[in-house]
Design a binder for these strands. Structure first.
Lengths: 219, 219
DNA sequence: CTATATTATGACTACATAGTCACATAACTA
DNA sequence: TAGTTATGTGACTATGTAGTCATAATATAG
C-alpha cells in the first residue's frame, strides 16, 4: 500500500498522480509501464514518487485495487436484477453493465484486464484484488443458475463459467472492432459515445445463444 | 526475412537457434523477449546474430511465420472432415485439433497466440502471417455454415465468428486449468500427456452449446 | 600458396529502466 | 523565533536492452 505521505497529499495532487499512473498502466503492461514516464508527466521528482510508493509493484497493486473497486461500484449502481429472478436475465444485465463500464472507463477497464490476463511477477496478489469481478464470481453464479434450474444439470459448471466469463471479458473488444476502434485507441482517447441500441442487440444475441445452448427447455 | 547467411548455416545450428528463439518468444512478449538471452543460450556472439537477422522484428516475424505454418500443417494432417458435411462437425474437429496442437506444441502455440493477441509494434505485418488460422478464417467458415443452413439466418455472422473464435482460442487454457497447469508452465516444461477422453468430452459439450445456441432446429 | 569472399566475434555505443540518498525546502510546534 | 518533523529533489548507481563495427578467423577459390 502507498505510504501515509501519499494519503496526506492534497487530494488534487493525489488524483492527478493516480490518473496519470492509471493511463500508464492501461497503455503498457507491467514490465513496460515506466515510473520515469509517470514522474515526468506528473512533474514530480523521482524521489518524491518513492516517498509515496514502496516500489513499482506497490503502485500497480494499488491501481488494480482502485480500478476493481470502481468497476464493482459501477456495477452495483447499475440496477442489478435479482439472480433469483432468473440466471440469464441476470447474466444479460451483467454483460451489458460490464461492457458499458469497459467503454465508458476504458483505462480502468484495461488496468483490471491486464491484472487478470496480463503477465505479472505477482499474479496471486493481483488476483486477490480482482476476485469479485473475475471467473470465481461467475462460477458462483453458474452454480446458483444450475440450482435454480436455469441451466441444464448435464452442463459442466466450470465449463459453463469459462464460456460465460471468456465471452463477457472479450465482448467489449468485439463491440469496439465493430466500430473500427482498437482497445488501445479507446484507452488513449477516452470514452466514446455509444450506439446503445446496437450494443443491446449484440448482448441479446449472445445471451440467446448461451441460453439456448445451456437450457434445452428454452427454444 | 533472415539473411542468406542464416540459411547457409548448418541445419543443426539453424534448428538450435530457432528452437531457443521460439522458447524466448513463447515465454516473453515482444517487448520483453531478449536477444541478449537468446545469443547467450545459443552460445553465439551478438554480432553473429545480427548477421542472421536484420533486427529483433525480423526474427519475430520469421518465428511467427514458422509457428503458423507448423500449426496449419498440423491441422491439415489431422484428418479434417469436409465442411460441406456439416458446419458443427467441422468446427468440432477444428477445436479438437487446435487444442491438441496447443497442448503438444505449447511453445509454437504461444508464439502464434502472442502474435495475434499480444502487443506488437508491427501488428499488421504479424497478422499477415496468421491470417489462415485467425478470426478471418472462422468468419469464412461461419458464412459457409449459414449458407448451408447449419446456422440460423438470424444469427449475426460476425458475432458468431467472434464467439467461436474466442472460445476456440481460450479453450486450451481451460483444459490446462482443469489439470492445474498454467500456460506458462506448459510452455516451459514442454508437452504433457493428455487425458484424451476428458478432452473430447469438453469439446463435445462446447459444440453442443454452440450448436443448440445457433441452430434452433437442433435441440 | 595466395587472394578473395564469407562468417564469427565481443567490446562498445546509446539509451532506458527501477530504485537510492544526501541534501534542500517547507510546515508545523513549542 | 528556534527547533523539529514531514516533504520535495534530482543527480547518481546498478542493471538491462538493441544494435554496431573494427577485427579476427575461416573457408573457398584461382
Amino acid at each position: 500500500m502507498p505510504t501515509q505521505t501519499f494519503f496526506n497529499l492534497p487530494e488534487e495532487k493525489r488524483r492527478m498522480i493516480v490518473e496519470i499512473a492509471i493511463a500508464e498502466f492501461a497503455n503498457h503492461d507491467y514490465a513496460n509501464a515506466s515510473i520515469s514516464r509517470i514522474v515526468a508527466q506528473a512533474k514530480i521528482a523521482k524521489g518524491s514518487f518513492y516517498q509515496y510508493f514502496q516500489d513499482k509493484k506497490d503502485l500497480c497493486l494499488y491501481l488494480v485495487k482502485l480500478a476493481s473497486e470502481e468497476k464493482i461500484a459501477f456495477l452495483r449502481s447499475n440496477n442489478p436484477p435479482e439472480l433469483q429472478q432468473g440466471f440469464f436475465p441476470y447474466l444479460r444485465w451483467l454483460m451489458g453493465a460490464g461492457a458499458r463500464f469497459d467503454l465508458t472507463h476504458p483505462a480502468l477497464s484495461q488496468v483490471v484486464y491486464r491484472a487478470i490476463y496480463g503477465e505479472l511477477p505477482f499474479r496471486e496478489e493481483a488476483h486477490q484484488q480482482t476476485k469479485e469481478i473475475s471467473l470465481e464470481y461467475v462460477q458462483q453464479l453458474v452454480e446458483q443458475g444450475i440450482a435454480q434450474g436455469d441451466i441444464d444439470t448435464d452442463v459442466d459448471p466450470d465449463l459453463a463459467a469459462f464460456v460465460i466469463n471468456t465471452l463477457g471479458n472479450e465482448l467489449g473488444k468485439f463491440i469496439l472492432s465493430r466500430r473500427g476502434i482498437s482497445p488501445k485507441q479507446l484507452a488513449q482517447e477516452g470514452p466514446i459515445d455509444l450506439d446503445m441500441q446496437r450494443m443491446e442487440n449484440i448482448f441479446d444475441e449472445v445471451i440467446q445463444i448461451l441460453e439456448r445452448g445451456m437450457n434445452s427447455s428454452k427454444n
